[in-house]
Nucleic acid binder design. Structure first.
Length: 931
RNA sequence: GCCGCGAUGGUGGAAUCGGUAGACACGAAGGACUUAAAAUCCUUUGGCCCGAAACGGCUGUGUGGGUUCAAGUCCCACUCGCGGUACCA
């Protein structure tokens, strides 16, 4: 009987669908378990063989958990908004919705063939109005909230208004863009617009002029995590800095909670570290440096700086301001104004990329001086682009002896360097380490650096010249995108101030446009929409020709970024059809949070920060019961491509095999991996592959053409893309699933190499053949041992996500049980393999005489008694005396015992000399040695 | 620069708690079946040495040290590769 995988797989996929086998209920007596994959962006290229890796792993785990008796939620959906669909629309005029839907259909078809146990009734799409209604809803709530630092919680903005009415900005400990000072009377005197401007300083979703990463090629701003080395992550286009009026989310308010939360979740240390670095907490002090003008100290004018090295104040020999700093205007003297302006213009001209690649020391003197509050020395104030406006206060105290950047600057401008640590040689470079004994530092002399930092912090607080402070590197997330294909903001503008569309009017649907490019006047694409104005009185969208700024107002033209839709999708799966709430209290109380989340580590500083932030906000609202969204997270590695090469002899149409290429002058050329098997080129197919190769000639070795190979990214241009559909067609879904797991550890990146898939396929065929006849005979001890060994191994492996080592265990069991046709063995075996090869398992399970689905079976119970070794105890002599007893597997001949134990003289001596110790020497053969 | 991860045969990888390194699979070589091929099955397969053979010996997990009766595994120093981050004061 042949293993007809195509027939088997089609049959069971249809059966599962007909039985609604994977439909999940929110009501169950079973314990719940929530397994989630990072949902894909449906690109036009379809899935390649690397995409399903994580999905297969999560599917195995889901099926295992179900067999263990859990009610398992394992959904799938699509992150459907994004740049590629829009870029394609700009080029072809096709509506992004059309191409997106087409791509989703293709993805679902491909995923369907692999046999995942998704409950498709719970599918979500971020671009569907009944989904993005809740994205808009949450944004609206963020606008209506501020963050209370004392309560460590988001609060309704109305509370803040009451505070202002009562005492103005006094006694306020809240997250804010800048510190404002006003009284209750001031507040009362403000008009509506002015009050709105004040509130904007505190809202969790706020509109402000911010320095943004502007990408001219994409025509939009990008978040920090969407930019790498001055280029956009998508497309690799140059990015420049610009100040624009943008929506932002006050993620920074949650910095400490995002940091603390990491301690409570089961993620890999490396991922947590990446997030810790990104949040970048640093403890230090803020200090005030008085400014001098015309040789006298200006009353009330101070430069506020942030430092983590308060101990080094005595070594401050100059100050540096960021070019964009507010202080610049205040301190530049008229004699230096021209020079400074020239420098600032030069800085503005430089692109982010130039700044990164060309890191020479630049700067300009402002003409003003500050006073070192401790040494009382007069120190010059400079401007330089090595100081960043966005971090700390945008101004620093420079300590050239103990900071390498300040050192480089001091050397360039011939500024004094005062060493502060005994024994530190600063003649060639700075001494940056936080260790050693202080000198030249007044009352700090003789202290260790760490003591000195603490002492100085105490001193500056006592003297009122500064305060202890914690800074975070984490910035607020820029939330506006000048694009069409994204969630519209539920926002309209009245007198240039934003207002939210009422909750009951959501969703605010994305309007039709006739062009996807920005308007001629540079407005985002939504500026092309006719039906895009808000009638405040009638609470509905109307034609924009009706805008009168009395009752009809313009709507926001930007859309939300990609991470908006992906920040809470895991909640929506719990209750996907609810139109009253993002998720009902009951559904959330049942499913709680994601128990296991699988996805790539490339989302460490993007999606995985944003969705933690988003979830914490919803937690503060009381909408969700868990502070963290993902209890456990596993990063699957990337699957790289394995490219093949042929070697063309330069100037000819001759191709030389790998082993002989050194004898010619050759040029390597990528060749489609689908016409190469085990690195042997199919020369006929090669000739047909492209017209230019029709009359190719080959220089063979041993009658074969051997190709070279390299590991590269899987991409069309490298001709190394392997399509899962082809694999399913040739080998079946079960083989593909097993082989993807067999390839190596889940978390490691590895190249896809189709060589080797035959071995896995052969194993499944052999396994299948064991089920041709099934008898009711009683199994032997050896058969039960093989079975239970396998139960133990596979259970351990799945729980530890070590799927790659399970497959060899199955292969060994299969060869040990080759002759076994007994139901008592074959039936549990079919359950064990069900998570890995669900279609074949169903077939095996039914061959054992069952009429239900194997998915509703129970995971086999391990019985240790079948594993107990058959052992014999031997006395072992050493130096003529019986020194210890050794317990050995029965099948080991006695004469080998002493040889094994005494193989190492030192070990034997050790065993003889150390009395009552139990040492496991060799599991399986020598069971243990008992003294 | 800083943080994290990794390095084991021709290849992918195994060794889960410090206890036979190289499981399992691929590839390769040889053999069986076959008119032949495919498929299937069997044998061998880290390197080196002794030997007719059996048996055996030495060596071996990126490099150099160390701890231990025993190290791929633990410690110290280094080399290379991958990923993240980068004037964060």
């Amino acid at each position: 009987m042949d293993y007809n995988f195509t027939a088997i797989e089609q049959r069971w996929q249809q059966q599962w669908k007909a039985d609604c086998l994977y439909k999940v209920s929110n009501k169950s007596d079973k314990p719940k378990y929530y397994v989630l994959d990072m949902f894909p962006y449906p690109s036009g290229a379809g899935l390649h063989v690397g995409h399903p890796l994580g999905y297969i792993a999560s599917d195995i785990y889901s099926r295992y958990k179900r067999l263990q008796g859990f009610n398992v939620l394992h959904p799938m959906g699509f992150d459907a908004y994004g740049l590629p669909a829009e870029q394609y629309a700009i080029q072809t005029g096709q509506h992004p919705e059309v191409t997106t839907n087409k791509n989703i259909a293709r993805y679902k078809e491909q995923l369907g063939k692999i046999g995942f146990c998704y409950d498709w009734d719970r599918e979500v799409r971020t671009c569907s109005p009944d989904y993005y209604k809740w994205t808009q809803w949450t944004f609206r709530r963020m606008f209506l909230s501020y963050y209370d630092n004392k309560l460590q919680k988001a609060q309704p903005i109305d509370n803040l208004v009451r505070h202002f009415e009562a005492e103005g900005s006094a006694n306020l400990d809240v997250a804010q863009s800048e510190e404002l000072g006003f009284t209750a009377a001031d507040w009362q005197a403000m008009g509506d617009k002015e009050r709105q401007q004040v509130l904007m300083n505190y809202r969790l979703a706020y509109l402000a002029y911010t320095k943004v990463n502007w990408c001219p090629a994409l025509g939009t701003v990008l978040a920090n995590d969407e930019v790498s080395e001055g280029l956009s992550v998508r497309g690799g286009h140059p990015v420049e800095q610009r100040v624009m009026r943008q929506w932002s989310l006050r993620v920074s308010a949650y910095a400490q909670r995002l940091l603390d939360g990491l301690e409570t979740i089961d993620w890999t240390e490396s991922l947590k570290d990446t997030q810790r670095n990104w949040i970048g907490r640093s403890e230090g002090a803020e200090m005030l440096f008085p400014v001098k003008a015309n040789e006298t100290v200006v009353e009330g004018m101070n430069l506020k700086i942030f430092t983590t090295r308060a101990d080094t104040v005595f070594g401050v020999t100059f100050m540096v301001l960021a070019p964009e700093s507010e202080y610049v205007k205040q301190v530049v003297t008229s004699e230096h104004a021209a020079e400074v302006e020239e420098y600032l213009a030069w800085v503005r001209r430089r692109t982010e990329r130039e700044r990164i690649s060309d890191r020479k020391v630049t700067g300009v003197f402002t003409g003003s001086y500050a006073v070192n509050p401790l040494s009382k020395a007069e120190i010059p104030i400079y401007i330089s682009d090595y100081v960043l406006a966005g971090y700390g206060t945008g101004a620093i105290m420079a300590v050239p002896a103990h900071d390498s950047r300040d050192y480089a600057f001091a050397r360039h401008f011939s500024l004094p360097v005062i060493p502060l640590i005994e024994g530190a040689d600063v003649s060639e470079q700075s001494f940056d380490a936080k260790e050693g004994v202080m000198m030249n530092s007044g009352f700090l002399n003789g202290m260790q650096v760490k003591e000195a930092i603490a002492a100085m912090k105490r001193y500056i607080e006592e003297q009122g010249i500064g305060r202890v402070r914690v800074n975070y590197r984490l910035r607020d997330a820029i939330f506006s995108r000048q694009r069409y294909w994204g969630e519209p903001f539920p926002v309209y503008y009245k007198d240039d101030m934003p207002y939210m569309i009422p909750e009951q009017c959501l969703p605010l649907c994305l309007p039709e446009v006739d062009k996807f490019l920005p308007t001629e006047t540079g407005e985002p694409p939504l500026g092309n929409a006719q039906l895009w104005a808000w009638n405040e009185a009638e609470k509905k969208v109307v034609d924009k020709s009706m805008i009168d700024n009395q009752t009809v107002f313009p709507l926001e033209l930007c859309t939300m970024p990609g991470f908006a839709g992906s920040s809470a999708y895991y909640l929506r799966y719990m209750d996907p059809h609810n139109d009253e709430a993002l998720v009902s209290g009951e559904a959330n109380a049942y499913w709680q949070q994601v128990d296991l989340y699988l996805g790539g580590s490339e989302h460490a500083t993007g999606h995985l920060i944003y969705s933690r932030f988003w979830n914490k906000f919803l937690f503060d609202l009381g909408l969700v019961c868990k502070d963290e969204p993902f209890a456990k997270l596993i990063n699957q590695g990337m699957i790289q491509g394995r490219s093949n090469f042929v070697y063309r002899v330069i100037g000819t149409n001759k191709y030389v095999s790998l082993g002989l290429k050194d004898q010619y002058e050759v040029q390597p050329i990528h060749v489609d991996v689908n016409i190469v098997q085990n690195d042997v080129l199919d020369t006929d197919k090669f000739r047909c592959w492209m017209p230019e190769y029709n009359d190719a000639e080959f220089i063979l070795e041993d009658g074969k053409y051997i190709c070279g190979w390299a590991i590269e990214k899987m991409s069309k241009s490298m001709f190394n893309v392997v399509n899962p559909d082809d694999m399913v067609e040739r080998y079946g879904a079960d083989t593909l699933r097993l082989y993807e797991m067999f390839l190596g550890p889940l978390e490691m990146s590895k190249p896809w190499d189709t060589n080797g898939i035959d071995g896995v396929h052969r194993f499944l065929r052999k396994l299948w053949n064991m089920y041709e006849t099934v008898t009711d005979d009683a199994p032997t001890a050896a058969e039960l041992k093989s079975l239970h060994k396998l139960i133990k191994k596979v259970t351990w492996d799945i729980e530890n996500f070590s799927f790659n080592t399970s497959i060899p265990a199955f292969m060994i069991a299969q060869s040990e049980l080759q002759q076994c046709r007994k139901r008592a063995v074959l039936e549990p075996l079919s359950v064990l393999i069900a998570p890995f090869a669900p279609h074949l398992a169903e077939e095996m399970w039914h061959r054992c005489g069952n009429h239900t689905s194997v998915c509703d079976a129970s995971w086999p119970v391990l019985e240790e008694r079948y594993l107990v070794e058959d052992t014999v105890k031997y006395p072992v002599q050493f130096n003529g005396k019986v020194r210890f007893t050794i317990e050995l597997a029965k099948d080991m001949p006695r004469e080998e015992v002493e040889r094994v134990v005494l193989a190492s003289d030192d070990t034997a001596r050790y065993l003889a000399g150390n009395q009552p110790k139990k040492v496991i020497v060799v599991p399986g053969r020598i069971v243990n040695i008992v003294c």
